[in-house]
Design a protein around this nucleic acid. Structure first.
Length: 461
DNA sequence: AAACCGGGCCAC
DNA sequence: AAACGTGGCCCGGTTT
């Protein structure tokens, strides 16, 4: 892995970047330590309650008995041994080294109700870890997350102490607990600017697939809804009614396929993890409603009567996906792999070079992931330069791969939004002509003096 | 006691 | 060919 020897721009991007990121690190994000102290006390009690309930179960008592009285509730290997060696349950899922898995999904499919206390405990334990991280790293009520440009194989960034790039978001309750700790400076407001579907758009700059370019250029079109229609065999697709199916198609098929997954994994994952599909058994009456009909009945009526039939169905859809829908994208993947095998490296559109031992999936993913982040980095640098040039009180405080987080002076709000839209969506494509797709950002804003949990969509009037 | 590793889980 | 890409952190368990 190295930088393309001819690319001065690539050096400059990182040199400017490390300075701009350093200023964000120095700025920091305010932590409400009174809240952290109070919330930690509540969490200690909450975690203890789940633990007590769990310890009352016969499942736990058997576990303790099997070990002669000593169980560590945090020990996955002890749980694994008890489930798969002592009780001789067939693991629903294996780890990479072939052991029985004890992750939430695996435990769920064992249908052991007592384990619910265990998984609930884990959720709040996670929140506890995040708050303890903030507490440990704060100095005078500010955390200063580090942003590294020298650690990721893809030329992305990483963050640590504390990691600003993996604070819980999707589990609403856990998100609230964690993000209620983070505040702007007094009198200011936090703002997040996200590039919309950045990796998909940057991938299109490499492969230039006409169908994908059409999807990107036409905001009324919807690739994931189209795939949901095809996968679930629906003639018409009402997005508001079928949002669950759209998400299932997006997260269970389209993105995994882009990353290099294939139909077999997609089929079994979709059947149990996404879209509330029936658990592989395809029993009539199961699943969400399509009109008045449960999804399972709908699929059965279309001739998909079992998981293996669904697998075969997805196999055909995959062939159509790469063979007919995005053939130029598929060609690009093959070409890229051929180039790597011949020369031993692939070059990013941003002047960097990935070399070393890579799989085919690596070869198609690294350049996209890296170049997408570099778009963010360029915008970050330019925004930082303008804040300094104009002498604003607003500060950039962090970055999450395709998003910038700012601590905004409300008096400067309109100006900041204007500048950031111009920099991210207009100036960047002018600076980098290889960007042949429109870029778009979504802005979220917290009220003045409110925490990061209070983010709301900001709509330009 | 430190170093290392696998597994799990959070983010994009 | 290969079979989901990139990170960081916590934890238990083992090796050094």
């Amino acid at each position: 892995m190295n930088i393309h020897p001819k690319s001065h721009d690539a050096y400059k991007l990182l040199h400017d970047g490390i300075l701009a990121l350093g200023r964000a690190e120095q700025q920091g994000i305010r932590v409400d330590m009174d809240y952290v102290t109070l919330k930690k006390e509540q969490l200690v009690r909450k975690i203890a309650r789940f633990e007590e309930e769990f310890k009352k179960t016969t499942f736990y008592k058997h576990w303790v008995h099997s070990r002669g009285g000593k169980v560590n509730i945090n020990s996955g290997s002890q749980l694994r041994h008890f489930l798969y060696d002592v009780k001789k349950i067939e693991p629903a899922k294996l780890t990479t080294t072939g052991e029985g898995s004890t992750d939430e999904e695996a435990l769920d499919s064992l249908n052991i109700p007592e384990l619910k206390f265990f998984s609930e405990r884990s959720r709040f334990k996670k929140a506890m870890d995040v708050l303890e991280g903030f507490e440990r790293e704060q100095v005078n009520n500010y955390v200063h997350p580090f942003f590294n440009l020298h650690t990721a194989r893809t030329f992305r960034s990483s963050s640590d102490h504390p990691n600003f790039q993996n604070i819980p978001k999707r589990d609403e309750e856990i998100m609230q607990i964690c993000r209620k700790a983070l505040f702007p400076r007094p009198g200011h407001q936090l703002m997040e600017v996200d590039y919309s579907s950045l990796e998909v758009r940057i991938a299109a700059c490499y492969h230039k697939d006409p169908t994908m370019l059409k999807y990107i250029n036409n905001p009324a079109s919807d690739m994931h809804a189209d795939m949901a229609k095809q996968i679930f065999m629906l003639d018409k697709f009402d997005k508001s009614v079928h949002e669950v199916l759209r998400q299932a198609a997006k997260n269970g098929f389209v993105f995994p396929e882009f990353y290099g997954d294939y139909y077999k994994n997609c089929a079994s994952n979709m059947a149990c993890k996404w879209g509330e599909l029936p658990q592989g058994t395809w029993k009539a009456g199961q699943g969400i409603k399509i009109g008045d009909i449960p999804l399972a009945d709908h699929m059965i009526s279309k001739g998909i009567r079992s998981l293996s039939m669904f697998e075969n169905h997805l196999k055909k859809i995959e062939e159509d996906f790469w063979g007919n829908r995005f053939p130029d994208y598929a060609d690009w993947k093959d070409r890229w792999w051929t180039v790597y095998k011949k020369y031993g490296y692939v070059d990013l559109l941003t002047g960097f070079r990935c070399s070393g031992v890579m799989s085919k999936n690596d070869v198609i993913n690294y350049p996209v992931q890296g170049a997408a982040f570099h778009c963010l980095m360029w915008s970050f640098n330019e925004k930082d330069r303008l804040i300094n040039k104009y002498g604003l009180n607003t500060r950039i405080v962090g970055q999450i791969h395709d998003a910038i987080v700012l601590d905004v002076d409300p008096k400067e709000l309109n100006r900041v939004i204007r500048v950031i839209r111009r920099v991210t969506c207009e100036d960047l494509p002018k600076a980098w002509p290889w960007i042949i797709v429109p870029l778009d950002v979504a802005i979220e804003l917290c009220p003045v003096d409110k925490s990061w949990a209070e983010k709301e969509k900001f709509v330009l009037e």
